[in-house]
Design a protein around this nucleic acid. Structure first.
Length: 231
DNA sequence: TGCCAGGCCGGGT
DNA sequence: ACCCGGCATGGC
């Protein structure tokens, strides 16, 4: 019984060490191939948050149009967006798709920000209590990926962001199952990489770049993907 | 022309 | 706990 437990631990630790090297190897290959991605594409923390909500299941090129429209109307500030009607916001973010739900979600966020943090992103990210992620998840329209994107890219909090590309790439490499849940995939990275905000930032950005270029949903082939050697 | 994109929610079983 | 339909535009 006891020996069995020790045996299992030995296997586990061995695997974990391999995973650390493997995941860093993936990272080094991608960084070597593509270099720094300069994420998040956005000038301010609030713009990052807005982009994170608008890009839900949506091509980034469409999000850019919506963000430009909001910027043009002076709405890329918590206070102005908070005091603008949903209809008006929906009209402006039309190119991003799902414009009615997303307009509501943007206002859900600013509503939360003013209710709980005096409308200040500085206060939001400086709340020393570690329940911020749960608070964000409590906002209707903010799920695990959006919450982690906000924390990592707007707040520089070391939370690994998992998206469809991440799942697709690593399930095709048999490191996770095809239907692994968000938290499971996230744990793979959080438990096997140093908790470095800068590393998480670049890693996720590189995975998105890789996914867009080499890991389309339909295409079973990988072309000249720099991760080809890991298959 | 149809399929896809940096998800999430609500209702049903 | 799982499964599913809905949400919607623009690019290829």
């Amino acid at each position: 019984m006891r020996r069995h437990g020790v045996f299992k631990m030995g296997i586990k630790r061995g695997k974990k060490k391999d995973l650390k090297k493997l995941l860093l190897g993936y990272y080094e290959s991608l960084f070597g191939a593509f270099g720094p991605q300069g994420w998040w594409p956005g000038d301010t923390r609030f713009e990052v948050i807005v982009g994170a909500i608008l890009t839900q299941n949506t091509a980034w090129s469409n999000v850019e149009k919506a963000v430009r429209a909001l910027k043009r109307e002076g709405l890329l500030k918590p206070a102005t967006m908070h005091s603008t009607g949903v209809k008006e916001i929906a009209r402006l973010i039309r190119p991003a798709g799902y414009f009615n739900v997303k307009a509501r979600r943007l206002k859900n966020f600013t509503g939360y920000l003013f209710k709980n943090h005096s409308g200040s992103l500085g206060r939001l990210f400086n709340t020393s209590d570690n329940g911020l992620r749960e608070e964000l998840l409590g906002i209707n329209g903010i799920g695990p990926e959006t919450a982690d994107s906000i924390l990592l890219y707007a707040g520089r909090v070391p939370e690994f962001v998992v998206d469809a590309y991440t799942k697709r790439i690593f399930s095709r490499h048999s490191l996770i199952s095809e239907k692994a849940e968000y938290g499971e995939v996230k744990a793979l990275f959080m438990e096997n990489l140093p908790g470095d905000e800068s590393l998480f930032n670049e890693y996720h950005a590189l995975l998105v770049k890789t996914g867009k270029d080499f890991c389309k949903t339909r295409n079973p082939l990988c072309g000249d993907c720099p991760l080809g050697g890991f298959l």
